[in-house]
Simulated assay, not measured.
Amino acid sequence: MRRHELLEQLHDRLAPRTYLEIGVSTGTSMSLSRTRSIGVDPFFRIRRELRCDLQLVRATSDEFFASAGAFEHFGGSAFDLAFIDGMHLAEYALRDFINTERHAHPASVIVLDDMLPRVPVEGLRDRRDARSHGAWAGDVYKILDALRTLRPDLVCLELDTGPTGTVAIFLPDSSSTMLVVAYDELVQAYVVPDPQDIPDEVLRRSRALDPEDLLRSSIWDGLRRLRERPAAEARPEVARLLAEAGLATPR
């Protein structure tokens, strides 16, 4: 399954009321939305028909998140679905996740793209060298270890999507500051010269789920229902929902 097929199916399963996208590019993924949406990209060049209630923001994600009233288009509501496909460097992707999570509900779903490079050259930090191969995932894969280690409250599911893999994150906590506190130290470890030492389990996708298994799971009705509940009430129920579906145990 390709990443945009997964995203299309997630729109169908979740029926999100609000959708956030970081990295709009030509509009391929945004064209899947039929709901109130915000798309952020400093250099978007839309080549698809967009059929949603959309605010397009021509800015970097950092500029967007720092702006006053960034989420006014959502009327103060949390997003139900977010797709992060911005700059393909770990320090940017981690920052995008931190800033995105601040506007989440426990029943929100965050999808990170380019998390599972297939070969070492796809995981280089230097885009020019990677592009000679074809695809560039960058070193975004590095943030998954930090999410699992520092945020065991999150459920992070690697998904075997083409071409460069995705991760779906459940149970976000808008009040968490753990990653903010650790950010500078993490970035020092991330920003190192190429070539990158990519873990074998990333390249082999040994922990990755078939996305069809996730899509066939029993969680979707419950997530739609629980996003109507206050965050404090919804959190334990979302955790129970994921556990009952067999999705809460790390692979």
Rank of each mutant, 00 (worst) to 15 (best):
E237C: 13
V155F: 07
W136P: 12
F44K: 13
D62M: 00
S108T: 07
F170C: 09
L54Q: 07
Q196R: 04
I143S: 00
A70N: 05
R118T: 04
L154N: 08
T164M: 07
V40R: 02
G76F: 13
Y141P: 04
V111R: 11
E237G: 06
V119W: 09
E49F: 06
V238Q: 13
M178F: 03
T161Y: 09
A70H: 11
R95W: 15
D129Q: 12
N99K: 13
D80A: 04
L209C: 01
D126R: 11
A245V: 13
W136Y: 15
L242R: 14
S217I: 12
S132N: 05
D153W: 09
D213T: 13
L147W: 10
A245K: 00
L150A: 08
I98W: 02
L112T: 07
P106E: 15
G39F: 06
S108C: 05
T26F: 11
S25Y: 07
S217L: 11
L94F: 11
P230K: 01
L179I: 03
S29P: 02
A243S: 14
I110W: 14
D114P: 04
V202T: 12
L56A: 01
G75C: 02
P117K: 09
D197G: 15
V192I: 14
P250G: 06
P16F: 03
Q55C: 11
L157P: 08
F71S: 08
S61T: 03
R48D: 15
V119Q: 15
D80H: 05
T177N: 07
A248D: 10
D129W: 10
F97H: 02
C156V: 14
A90W: 01
V167R: 07
S174M: 15
D139G: 02
L179K: 02
L226A: 07
Q188P: 08
E244G: 14
A135N: 15
D194C: 00
V155D: 01
E72W: 05
E8Y: 02
G69M: 10
L203F: 03
V191I: 14
L241Q: 01
L144P: 03
A59L: 09
P172Y: 12
Y19G: 01
P163F: 09
Y141H: 02
P163G: 04
R118L: 06
I38F: 06
P230L: 01
E91K: 09
P152N: 00
N99A: 14
P106C: 10
D194Q: 01
L14I: 00
D173H: 02
V140D: 00
R207Y: 08
L186F: 04
R227D: 12
V180E: 12
F97L: 14
F83W: 09
R118V: 10
L223D: 09
D80Y: 04
L7F: 12
D184I: 04
H73T: 00
L147D: 04
A168R: 11
S206P: 01
G246E: 02
V24P: 09
M115W: 01
